[in-house]
């Protein structure tokens, strides 16, 4: 499933125009991204939690060339599926 599929489903099932569907869907994801950038986790009941973790800088090595470089401070987003989603998927 891609964003195009979501847009199409929204047009067909909720009756929005293509342009509105795209704008609304983009907005929902950008609201979540804004939250991630503020290092704030996003929790969606019955779906899962997107947890933002910050990691400090460290020295990395290119395993092939052995070259060392600094991996900068970074934030990562980890998805933890809800218990409900995990259970439902297990039954499948």
């Amino acid at each position: 499933m891609t964003k195009q599929d979501l847009i199409r489903m929204m047009m067909e099932e909720l009756g929005y125009s293509r342009r509105d569907s795209k704008t609304l869907i983009d907005k929902v994801f950008s609201i979540m991204i804004q939250s991630f950038l503020k290092k704030e986790s996003v929790k969606i009941t019955n779906f899962g939690n997107f947890i933002v973790k910050t990691k400090g800088k460290r020295i990395g090595r290119n395993p092939k060339t052995k070259e060392e470089y600094i991996i900068k401070d970074r934030a990562v987003v980890v998805f933890k599926p809800s218990v409900g989603l995990r259970k439902e998927l297990k039954m499948k």
Binding site: L37, G48, V52, R74, L89
Partner: peptide, 19 residues
Amino acid sequence: KLPFFKVGKDLKKKLIEGL
């Protein structure tokens, strides 16, 4: 079966830059 999420390239970049 377990679902996994992988952060997209653009977002990954933004997260590093932001910090």
